[in-house]
């Protein structure tokens, strides 16, 4: 089933790659450059899944998770951290903020698609 997914990353390459992979799997993909940008987009459109980078200017991924979880509409929506670091500290912070899970960069396309289907139930 088509899901609407937002990918949040300050690197255009990453947004494009995630977008390309997920659109190829039949999903609709929105893009945002950083946490603030994502909040702006999400105030106008709803999504089924948030995939966010951790290290970003303005508002990083952890803070984005925290702020989204504070909003009524985003209490139960899955949020995945897309991160290069298998750094347990960052993972712990992400978990504490309320993230659903993580995807390691670099990812294999089928891994990403599998993670997305699992978490969105599609």
């Amino acid at each position: 089933m088509t899901k609407r997914i937002i990918t949040v990353d300050d690197a255009a390459t990453m947004r494009r790659l995630v977008g390309y992979t997920l659109r190829g799997a039949g999903h609709e993909v929105l893009e945002a450059e950083d946490g603030e940008d994502a909040l702006r987009v999400l105030s106008q459109q709803s999504v089924d899944l948030v995939i966010t980078d951790v290290n970003m200017p303005k508002m990083d991924g952890i803070e984005l998770v925290r702020q989204l979880r504070a909003l009524r509409d985003f209490k139960t929506i899955p949020i995945l951290l897309l991160t290069t670091e298998s750094d347990p500290e960052k993972k712990r912070q992400g978990k504490q903020a309320g993230a659903t899970g993580w995807i390691t960069k670099p990812f294999q396309p089928d891994q990403l698609i599998a993670a997305v289907s699992k978490v969105t139930g599609s």
Binding site: R69, K75, T76, I77, P78, I79, L80, T84, E85, S86, K91, G94, K95, G98, A99, T100, G101, W102, I103, T104, K105, P106, F107, Q108, Q111, L112, A114, A115, K118, V119, T120, G121, S122
Partner: peptide
């Protein structure tokens, strides 16, 4: 490389809020 250290490439946190069932 980071890929070797995380073969599955992704995971879910325990008792994380949403996640589809």
């Amino acid at each position: 490389s980071s890929m070797e250290s995380a073969p599955q490439g992704w995971g879910l946190f325990d008792e994380a809020p949403p996640a589809a069932n």
